[in-house]
């Protein structure tokens, strides 16, 4: 990654992290957008899968420090999602709105599934409702906000013409 791209990606990453801790609490929705995951996916498609997994691990540890009872679950989820996103990018990723939305949706849903299963905080019907209702809903909201974010940050993220 060129230094310019690194700076642009870092700027977008910081903006998304800030949005996660400012806009998300203001919205206060139960199915709220996950700006941290959008930031991770944004970085993951620009770096190698190993690096994406490392970034995911670090982000997950930092995020989990606010929820010590499920510490590590988010780190595991982000690590897997980051690695997967970076790996899958080479297979079918293209600059398409629908594919990007699907990418965000799947990333969020997969992350929630991993966290819910790894944290062992829910079971039975509540777990099923969370996995099959709320997680997809959060995925949809995250996908929508992800697309919106990409649209807004396009001037920053667009690579200069070579």
């Amino acid at each position: 990654m060129r230094p310019t791209d690194l700076a642009r990606t870092s700027l977008a990453f910081v903006i998304l992290v800030l949005l996660h801790y400012t806009l998300r609490p203001v919205l206060g929705w139960h199915a709220s957008p996950d700006f941290l995951l959008i930031a991770l996916l944004l970085v993951a498609i620009r770096v190698r899968p190993g690096h994406a997994a490392l970034v995911g691990l670090l982000m997950g540890l930092v995020a989990d420090s606010l929820e010590p009872h499920a510490f590590g679950a988010g780190a595991l989820g982000m690590c897997l999602v980051g690695f997967g996103a970076s790996w899958l990018k080479a297979v079918f990723f293209a600059d398409d709105v629908v594919l990007n939305a699907l990418f965000f949706f799947c990333g969020k849903w997969a992350f929630d599934v991993i966290v819910l299963l790894a944290a062992h905080q829910m079971s039975g019907g509540a777990l099923l409702v969370e996995l099959l209702v709320w997680s997809p809903l959060k995925g949809v909201v995250t996908a929508l906000f992800g697309l919106l974010t990409l649209l807004i940050l396009r001037p920053i993220l667009r690579a200069p013409a070579t």
């Binding site: 498609i45 899968p49 595991l76």
Partner: peptide, 27 residues
């Protein structure tokens, strides 16, 4: 999103495994 060509090698796999292990350890 931008198209960035990358290669996937053993180093990434090792790093990934290490990260997963660390995540489990943290858990």
């Amino acid at each position: 999103m931008t198209n960035v060509s990358r290669t996937y090698g053993r180093r990434d796999s090792v790093l990934f495994v290490v990260c997963v292990v660390l995540a489990f350890v943290a858990q």
